[in-house]
Design a protein around this nucleic acid. Structure first.
Lengths: 139, 139
DNA sequence: TCCTACAATGGACTAAGTCCAAGTCAAGTG
DNA sequence: CACTTGACTTGGACTTAGTCCATTGTAGGA
């Protein structure tokens, strides 16, 4: 049923009703939700779940590398369960929706070492910005 | 003296002591400052300047396209006065410092139209993440 | 010099998230 | 199965970064 849940269980995660619900909510939908959206959906199944627990659980899934945190602006962070397939993001500047995209090319290879300033570079993130069809239509 | 100031004046910007100070602070230093850092430096020269004014002024410079807003996480946004030379960013995951980098390649060209989902794509942002030499040294 | 529209102020307010002490419970042990 | 214990959850207080607004000030044109 839930791949994410299986992977987490396999890492010795202590399974609680709250964690199960959070994992299922995240994995079930392929939009990238904010913590509050995850909480809102989790509450439907488990009315007494707290915001703090949702934040904790999402944070742990991020540390375990099972989920990616995407913050494209100062609005809420969004959580992307698709951590195992490399991809980048296309963000609507108006409503904040995020879509996964798979551009050609490897941007990591485009950064020569004399442009690294002694940093240990571990990750690249490419964010395309634009206006989604929905927002373009409604002005 | 200040290129940024000249450009803004040329756009019919009403010049006030506050705006001058904000523009000079931003342009004077080639680190990318947060709004609060800009405010702290502005206060040294003009003690009664308010935080609200700093936010307003930075916001206007961003709308005019003279300054770029960079938000790499949920910490404070940073402001990049180098808006006229295309470049990307290298961010320290530990302390948040940002350096400008100039990778080879054009990531915009790497996004085929069948991966655009009807979006009008106007901008790409590439963010390299890693650990800066300073943070690597101090653990 | 005077006017007035644009700008600055500061304090209240908000959104998103973090922290913590106290209570609860999953799952290993006997 | 009952116990135990350390990990998990809770909710409320707190923080950070930023926005909003009514009031006051002032740049720059007539």
């Amino acid at each position: 049923m839930s791949d994410l849940l299986e992977r987490l269980r396999g890492r010795g995660w202590r399974m609680t009703a709250q964690r199960r619900v959070v994992a299922e909510v995240l994995d079930g939908d392929h939009v990238h939700l904010t913590a509050d959206e995850v909480h809102a959906r989790a509450v439907v199944r488990l009315p007494e779940i707290s915001r703090a627990t949702v934040y904790n659980t999402l944070g742990e899934m991020v540390s375990l590398g099972e989920v990616i945190e995407v913050s494209t602006d100062r609005r809420a962070k969004r959580y992307d369960p698709n951590a195992h397939r490399p991809h980048h993001h296309l963000v609507c500047a108006s409503c904040g929706t995020i879509r996964d995209v798979h551009p050609a090319g490897d941007p990591m290879a485009d950064l020569p070492s004399d442009e690294r300033f002694g940093f240990t570079v571990s990750d690249v993130e490419v964010t395309y910005r634009g206006i989604c069809p929905g927002c373009a239509a409604t002005g």
